[in-house]
Amino acid sequence: MSSHEHQISESLKYASYIQRAIFPSDALLDSLFPDHFVFHKPRDFVSGDFYFAARKNNLFVVAVGDCTGHGVPGALMSILGITLLKEIIAHGNFSTAGSVLNRMREHIMAALQQTGEESEQKDGIDLALCIIDTKQNTLNFAGAVNPVYIVRNKQLHELRGDMMPVGIGAEEEVPFTSQQFELTEGDCLYLFSDGFADQFGGRDGRKFKYKPFRDLMVKLSALPMPGQKMLIEQTFDAWKGNQQQLDDVLVFGLRYHTCS
């Protein structure tokens, strides 16, 4: 390896440490969601996929984002995304998941100076965000392109996101839709990026796709969380085989437990 390549590789490694430091720590995740798993497989050193978790009073916030691009550009966007989410959750007055995404979009547009000009870069984040109210046992969800899956008694419920990114889109901004869902003990929630479903592999070298992905989630839900992670990892590796990983892959799963 040339000295130049070595330098780049070292820089990227260092960047990946920084990115990891910005992600919620295992200890924080364990304290917020004792029963959870994170399957995160970046394509490069650093990742355009990110996850986020926080708590404000009785509200628990969890989000999984997928930024435009992967590698360094994606990672920079992911840092912006996590920072904005932290800021909005900590200091903003949010009532619904949609209002968090609305506010986040304003910040991204302002930060990237997006005004809808045709020539400008349409960078943004696909994101699924859940606010779990443990007192009310409710889930408030808003999605930018990405959905959330809730599996209860081997039945999968999908809350779909709006078809617009967090960032400037082709159409004029409209508010993100907030959806409310009653949670019960043992419900499994899955937030994810498109990396798994879009991975080429298998015997015919085709995409994994969402139907098998949903089936996989249903299958997983019966297992304890560590087992779920193991199975998902095995499934992904087996599917990918010798194919190249095309995108970052992230699946965040948690099992809901009522306070009582």
């Binding site: 547009m109 302002a110 930060a111 990237l112 100076q113 997006q114 005004t115 901004e173």
Partner: peptide
């Protein structure tokens, strides 16, 4: 949409 009639990020 209705007042500024302009697309810009407002924080």
């Amino acid at each position: 949409r209705h007042v500024l009639q302009q697309r810009v990020g407002i924080t």
